[in-house]
Simulated scan of single mutants.
Amino acid sequence: MSEYLDTAQGRRIAYHRSMGRGPGVVFLGGFKSDMTGTKALYLQDWAGARGQAFLRFDYSGHGDSSGRFEDGCIGDWAEDAHAAIESLTEGPQVLVGSSMGGWISLLMARALPHRVAGLVTIAAAADFTERGFWAGFSEAQRATLMRDGRIELPSEYDDQPYVITRQLIEEGRKQLLMTGPLSLPFPVRMLQGTADLDVPMGWALDLLDHASGEDIRLTLVKGADHRFSTPDCLSMIAGAIEDVLA
């Protein structure tokens, strides 16, 4: 059963929290995904078996949280994550960010460095609104987006199309991480599948090259796709968190 956090921005964030020892683990999900996904539930069980504190939540417009998905943008979802970490956890946390959650976790590392004990990213989609959507649009698609304020893209994960809004693109430009310094002064473990069709392997290499820190490692998994949810992949995520906690 979800609990709810009311944020200063007037949004109601659904979450599930397991109490335990610290550093706690916070799972940050992907674009249009929710906290009932395979990775989130696997990690809750993993944390429970270890007696580790664990938090999963839905960004606004996702899952059981308030708001409409297409009204949100990266800054809103980063604010949701900020509120969840500050209000629902104590002390330093290991942030586990999947896809868009990887971008959000990196934004949290910049905004709340004192609350981050380490970082594990899975197919981190840093700057994807610009590097993925906008860069991949045709001139006709860009014109439609600017004129109508939205464009619909087919989704391979859902019957409903992705609605990409002009606001998502334009606000995303205020959140870009690959255009300025990115200091990660704690253990970072990045995981990336080579068969990922949503987040290119080259993005992981770019992030590794771009970020500064003493303990940053990237693991490429041959044949793994964007879901990164096979038993082997899930075990690898848990192992990366254990490595950071150690």
Results as ranks from 00 to 15, higher is better:
R166L: 08
S138Q: 11
M1H: 14
I85K: 06
H62S: 13
A246M: 13
V120I: 14
P187Y: 11
L207W: 02
T230I: 09
G67Q: 11
E90N: 07
Y42P: 08
G91Q: 07
E156C: 00
L176E: 04
S229I: 03
V221W: 02
A49S: 15
G61R: 04
P154H: 01
G172L: 06
Y4N: 08
P185D: 15
S235Q: 15
I122L: 12
V96M: 10
L106W: 02
R166G: 01
A211Y: 09
R142L: 02
M19G: 06
M108S: 10
I13A: 09
G136Q: 06
D64V: 00
G10V: 10
F128T: 07
F133H: 10
W77F: 06
I169P: 02
Y4M: 10
R217W: 10
H82Y: 14
W203S: 13
L208E: 07
K39R: 12
I122W: 09
L107W: 08
G29L: 06
R150T: 01
D71Q: 13
L182Y: 13
G149Y: 00
D215G: 12
G24Q: 03
G72L: 03
D148E: 14
R150A: 05
V120S: 12
E152R: 08
L88C: 10
F128S: 04
S212T: 15
Q93N: 14
